[in-house]
């Protein structure tokens, strides 16, 4: 992890084009979002296709606080994260309490995102409705000023910010080693986990809340970077799906899965969009969808599972049993 972070820090000093920097920012953004999504949906196996709800809550909270009270987005994102946690509790508690699993949980998550979506449109006096909201531009005067307002004229500072977010996200996930094991056990068999002394609801709710908090903070970053949000882009199904996709393609329930997925998918989509998007709108997403379906069919556990599959094949060929105890998922 440290080496990877170092490499990415070195990348910062490379003379890259604006487009390349943009791709890097987006990639890290989705790596971070996927890491947040992964905590609840990958490790605990509760597939949410409505995580955009929490992104939107985070984004709108910090944006509203900034435009009405000039509150720095740094505090705004904490506030947004907390509101997202509250929203998550409203849905997570009854979901886990009533034992909503499998497709039922997924449908509930989609419904929550839809509700947030419609409420954002309905509250047009505050949120601008489906026309969306722009981030009030503050002219860059001093570095301190830019930092406080989390607004920069170039892409480079955003790169550093999202690199930091992503690192913290990975670190948080990594530090939760015990919880990760519990969540995996709960995913595999809830009753068996409970019988072994694992509190199912407590661990699920912890995972759900941290997950919501993380993607809500990502929402604030989205606002600051794109300077414009609307309900369709930030509470819509596509964003929810994208968070899930980077994690699933990379390998959900593994520490680096979402990051691997993001580094593979996002540059690919963006380059496809650049080269094909102008001539034939939709072609890049069409190819993206096909890639996804093929990946799910042939590599359902994601790219992170490849080494394991290769090792298993090798072990079968060699006929040598490995007696080494597993060192856990890392």
């Amino acid at each position: 992890m440290g080496i990877l972070a170092l490499v990415l820090l070195v990348v910062y000093f490379l003379p890259l084009t604006v487009f390349a920097r943009h791709i890097l920012v987006l990639t890290l953004f989705y790596a971070f979002m996927g890491t947040g999504w992964n905590l609840m949906c990958g490790y605990a196996g509760r597939l949410s296709l409505g995580h955009a709800a929490f992104v939107a809550v985070g984004a709108y909270t910090s944006l509203l606080l900034f435009s009405h009270f000039s509150l720095t987005p740094w505090i705004g994102m904490i506030a947004g994260g907390l509101v997202a946690v509250v929203v998550m509790m409203l849905i997570a508690y009854p979901s886990f309490r009533f034992g909503l699993i499998g497709p039922y949980f997924t449908l509930a998550s989609i419904a929550v995102a839809e509700i947030v979506h419609y409420l954002l449109i309905y509250g047009r006096d505050l949120t601008g409705g489906s026309l969306g909201m722009s981030l009030p531009y503050v002219k860059e005067t001093t570095i301190i000023n830019s930092l406080i307002n989390l607004q920069f004229d170039g892409k480079e500072p955003y790169y550093l910010v999202i690199l930091g977010f992503w690192l913290v996200g990975l670190l948080v996930t990594w530090k939760m080693e015990r919880t990760r094991y519990y969540l995996e056990a709960i995913r595999e068999d809830q009753d068996a986990a409970a019988a072994l002394g694992i509190s199912v609801n407590k661990n699920l709710i912890i995972a759900a809340c941290i997950s919501a908090f993380m993607v809500a903070i990502g929402g604030t970053f989205y606002v600051q970077y794109f300077r414009y949000i609307d309900p369709y882009s930030i509470a819509g199904f596509t964003l929810s799906l994208n968070m899930a996709l980077v994690a699933v393609i990379g390998g959900s329930g593994t520490l680096f899965g979402p990051t691997i997925g993001a580094f593979l998918l996002i540059p690919l989509t963006e380059i496809l969009r650049m080269t094909l998007g102008a001539q034939i709108p939709g072609l890049h997403l069409f190819l993206y969808g096909i890639l996804l379906v093929v990946c799910i069919i042939f590599l359902p556990k994601g790219i992170a599972s490849l080494p394991g599959i290769i090792r298993a094949k090798k072990a079968k060929n060699d006929q040598k049993p490995e007696n080494q105890a597993s060192k856990g998922v890392l």
Binding site: Y181, E188, A193, A195, I198
Partner: peptide, 26 residues
């Protein structure tokens, strides 16, 4: 602690991790 009539291993985890998970809460 109880066992289940129909054994409930965690199918996606290795045997070592199955046991590890059981050791963890205490």
């Amino acid at each position: 602690t109880r066992t289940f009539q129909v054994a409930k291993p965690f199918p996606g985890l290795t045997i070592a991790d199955n046991i590890l998970v059981a050791c963890l809460p205490k």
